[in-house]
Design a protein around this nucleic acid. Structure first.
Lengths: 143, 143
DNA sequence: CTAGGCGCTAGACCGAGGTCTAGGTCAACG
DNA sequence: CGTTGACCTAGACCTCGGTCTAGCGCCTAG
């Protein structure tokens, strides 16, 4: 809301990205609106830019590649008229996240299982399922 | 359960990894038990190996780096006695996954929001929150 | 005036995780 | 017998996403 313009360093601090990364993102076209410059050529970020970057951070965190963010940024840059395409892109990412969640939950289940079987194993002497080397017949017989 | 030994190609097909990747994993020490060879020097995977690889795939899918899997494999390779360390490692990964889930859910929320605001936007004429370029004062004024 | 701090560009570098190539062995098939 | 196909090793190569460096410009404070 407030109309504070920020320097690259400030944006870095409040997005958690490095200034290097911010410049990289710009080079790669991740910005939806061209970053303004002051008279000395230094970048000047609007609150809107910062919000956008914050979104980018979340997109990245959910596995969206820079190239895809760049496409989205381009659509936004081109202005109104391509909302359907933006929606497509977002929906696909939505799906992507959902899949990730499913996979992660699956993995978590595995890990939970292993953890609790090791807990059991450590509690009483030895037992349960923990990975124990199988007998291992030491075969060197051609199949 | 069944004691079928598999070739690298077969393992590749049923784990979804490439044969290259399987060999890479072996070089990097991801295997908990040394992979046997037949008389001609070809890799022979036991059912146990395959199960292990399948676990590795899940670990990878949940963001565990190869190096960490390798450490775990080493612990298992060293045999019984270090269960506590294995448990630590697994618990940390558990935590890691949980964090990822939280972050992902957060991102999903953002994306959901954007998606539905674009849906609204497309349904009725124009409205809602979709990223619209702000007025953008075109300032080139030194701060 | 000089030093310190922040900014700039261009481009090198890095680590992770794969992927692919060259050049070779082996076995089965027709 | 020659061909085909799966496998082997060693090592080059690639992409992605950052990170860092060199060499410079500006501005402000002491």
């Amino acid at each position: 809301m407030a109309d504070i313009d920020l320097s690259i360093g400030q944006v870095a601090r409040r997005t958690g990205l490095s200034v290097h990364t911010l410049r990289l993102y710009e080079r790669k076209g991740l910005f939806a609106s061209e970053v303004r410059r002051d008279s000395a050529g230094r970048r000047v970020y609007s609150a809107w830019d910062v919000e956008w970057v914050a979104n980018c951070v979340k997109f990245r965190a959910s596995g969206m590649p820079l190239a895809t963010i760049s496409r989205l940024a381009q659509l936004v840059r081109e202005g109104t008229g391509n909302e359907a395409q933006r929606l497509d892109l977002l929906r696909e990412h939505q799906r992507h996240i959902t899949e990730q969640l499913a996979r992660l939950n699956d993995c978590l289940e595995l890990v939970n299982g292993k953890v609790s079987s090791y807990e059991r194993h450590l509690a009483d002497g030895a037992s349960g399922d923990p990975w124990q080397q199988q007998p291992q017949p030491a075969a060197t017989t051609g199949q």
